[in-house]
Design a protein around this nucleic acid. Sequence first.
DNA 1: CTGAAAGCGCTTACAG
DNA 2: CTGAAAGCGCTTACAG
Lengths: 353, 353
Amino acid sequence: MKSEDIAKIVGVSRSTVSRVINNYPDIPSSTREKVLNAIREYNYYPNSSARRLAGIKNSTLGIFVVDIKDNENPHHVIKNDEALLYDNTFFAPFTNAFIDQANKTHYYVLVSTIYSTSELWKIHSAFHEKRIDGGVVIGSGKEDYKKILQQMKQNFILAAVDIEIESFNENKAIYINTNNHQAAYDTAKYLIELGHRNIGIVTGDLGKLSGKKRFDGFKQALYDYKLHLNDEYIGYGDFTEPSGYVAMKKILQSHNPPTAVFVSNDTMAVGAYTAISESKLKIPDDISIIGFDNIKISGYMSPPLTTVSVSLSDVARTTAELLIQSVEKGTLTPVQKIVNASIVKRESCKSKK
Amino acid sequence: MKSEDIAKIVGVSRSTVSRVINNYPDIPSSTREKVLNAIREYNYYPNSSARRLAGIKNSTLGIFVVDIKDNENPHHVIKNDEALLYDNTFFAPFTNAFIDQANKTHYYVLVSTIYSTSELWKIHSAFHEKRIDGGVVIGSGKEDYKKILQQMKQNFILAAVDIEIESFNENKAIYINTNNHQAAYDTAKYLIELGHRNIGIVTGDLGKLSGKKRFDGFKQALYDYKLHLNDEYIGYGDFTEPSGYVAMKKILQSHNPPTAVFVSNDTMAVGAYTAISESKLKIPDDISIIGFDNIKISGYMSPPLTTVSVSLSDVARTTAELLIQSVEKGTLTPVQKIVNASIVKRESCKSKK
DNA sequence: CTGAAAGCGCTTACAG
DNA sequence: CTGAAAGCGCTTACAG
């Protein structure tokens, strides 16, 4: 069944069929109705490739979930396949919310996962082969993002979530970042206001914007409140659960361990909880913990974890909207958007007064 | 940049360029090299729509995640947007593993979410518009699946995961189901072998294959072991957390509450835990609980939940493989595949001897 | 081994 | 208001 068949059935030309499909105005409603009826009756759907070729947009957006661990420190690598993105509490909510938002506006979405630098071609091929009208990259580090930009033609409609940029003016794209600095600042401030003075941090992957900003915001708060950050109180993690465990272990070996620790994401907080319990310490009586991300597990930990909530679905919706706006317009409108986050108070922090 | 441009640069015809792209044999390696070099140098990617139109397959698979709650009992409906698929512990791992597997074989994947019967057209349109070469439906109930089949042309390559079928011979497709009956049977057997005699169940959505089979397998085990299933020990849930809470509350109101309960999925077990703790009962001392699905949270509950693990990523990989096999062959090979599951013993079950 | 040409199923100026 | 025709960028018999 092609448009010509419909045309014959109704007794008009392909042009006319095409015009009603594309909602051209000057069609008498009687003709329109006849065509529409035939389309319904014969269950006709226009071939999307032919439409694309003839110049109609694809109505497809791409999501590229990058989770490259090429240079990761060996002892952090979890070799088990299952430990890849499958249970990922960061990408899954984003992806789902993005798809929903796109679907609502009648866009399809193509999802690709990228586990190594050598798979970066997937992004370029999707764009260059014209499979998508626009796409979003999420989870990429700075270096990988640069590589992505290299082969990216200027007129491609690209969005980047949670990716650090050198200079906004140089690399045109739609940038969406959560206000990690401010949120981490608030986090430290919260602990300080609870009366804590010896405060530690488990950092995230400092190669990623979120890791760096959370660390910076945290330090800024200590500085503003004239508190010293003891080197012993810093544990370097990489956002994975085992790294949270290791980092917390290290912090607990301080001469005078901190009474509160900001853990840069909830996944690491799970590891940190284990380390703390192995040291026979109690949360929050001996040590207060505040996480970041408000992943689903966090509410079920014991004690339930106080954390920072960034609405990934808000971020996803915003991204989809901005992307679609540019696609409809046919040209990229570069923007930079900061999404706020807030503290979800549960039971892992205690007043020290 | 189109194939003609490359042809001119190299000094051959479009036909030849096309032949090297499509790996035709009889091309002298010198010509092949020249063309390949030009393609690389000028960063040329063939237009996917043009290729499709000309008869090359699309290399795209569709995932249709259906989560229709049209007829759901009002008090179970969670109106909050966030409660949709975003945190879904069932679909996310499947989707990710499926995408990975497809990507490995150089397939793209289009993901669509379907929240109501009126959105079912998305599936047909993706197929009819030739956006995908094959697709998988997951999460659909029996009735919705029937509706999907209605407009599905016989030659479409369709897979269905965890969907009950009336008659395998009638509706040709690739069916992948987990061995819910056997696993639920094992679950009950496990409790019985621990010495429990008063065993209850929180059922899942009985309109779904998994819900029904789990219930059936459970009943079969009791029957085989000559145990009576007390009506008071049955709580009807629908796989959502609140329904688990309500169902467990009901069970606990029995005259002589059971000492062990099989909860048909882990999400409901979370609700059940709450109900139990509100009744001042201890798991597993007062009551043993076994779940199903081994979602990520289950290991972090207190006590960690004993549950059944179906490897969703195995299921996803199998599905992708079967789908791709059919797509490559150009015609659907109907199959029915049962994937096994096994008990993950943790701390929520206790011997009664 | 390789080019010219037809064809895939649409859309859209162009002309009427 | 509407049809004939060109064109989108490929692939693939066909012929040589």
